[in-house]
Write a protein that binds this DNA or RNA. Structure first.
Lengths: 124, 124
DNA sequence: TTATATGTTATACATGATATAGAACAAATA
DNA sequence: TATTTGTTCTATATCATGTATAACATATAA
């Protein structure tokens, strides 16, 4: 799996790395049990600092996406089904986007269609 | 309209102010033509610096949500219907959230239901 | 005129986030 | 023994964020 980073954007590098790995898991490119490149390896491949990759990995670990072992490295975790608190947290983060879409006269159906478009582009 | 800010959170204050005004417009609490409080007034009400409010207002102006006049103050703008580029930009920002939901075994329908929940909570 | 209020701009400062760099540690493997 | 793993530590540089103070041009009201 190839990870690319936009250095000129306003999204932190560690956040971009985190997002792309999550997208990789969602799309099936990364499956539970798969080994991730070591922090040094990935840092060298992308051309960034080891600490930046380590921060992304630590976040993914705290979020339950990966399992890290000091000796064997990092691998994709098997995740449980989402619970109530996650959905509430998700709603809170989505709210500003839904609100902006409503201001721009986007219907609920149009918004949901965009979500479906993302969903299917990841699923295949 | 009351604007409250979380100082301990990880979301910048100017971003929180921006989001809450957008939510106010989406919910109909703020309508096109309505006057916004002056930057000094709102800053005093919330208990933050004038420049922080000014930054939020400047962003809202750049995004087309409000119209600012050096003499008459700021007011809510009448917005056109969203265009193609906006939807593409929106998809890019939503993608990580959809991906995370998929990793947590959330179905498309469940995600869309959350969006609908937000939509209706703003609409009423 | 005078006073007040508006957005706007400028400078300065403090703090935290971000990213880099180099080094070292404990544990496991080849 | 040598290498690799995640992890931790110190250090530095840069940018974002937030505050503080001041001033400006413009408009309105007393």
């Amino acid at each position: 799996m190839i990870i690319e980073v936009d250095f000129s954007g306003d999204i932190p590098i560690y956040s971009q790395v985190r997002d792309q790995i999550v997208i990789g898991i969602a799309s099936g490119q990364l499956r539970p049990g798969d080994a991730l490149p070591s922090v040094r390896r990935l840092a060298a491949d992308i051309g960034i600092n080891v600490h930046t990759v380590n921060k992304a990995y630590a976040i993914l670990r705290d979020e339950g996406f990966i399992i890290m072992d000091r000796r064997s490295g990092a691998e994709i975790a098997a995740m449980k089904k989402e619970d109530g608190p996650f959905i509430e947290q998700l709603k809170g983060r989505l709210c500003p986007y839904v609100a902006e879409a409503m201001c721009r006269q986007m219907s609920l159906e149009e918004f949901q269609e965009s979500v479906a478009s993302i969903y299917h582009s990841l699923k295949m």
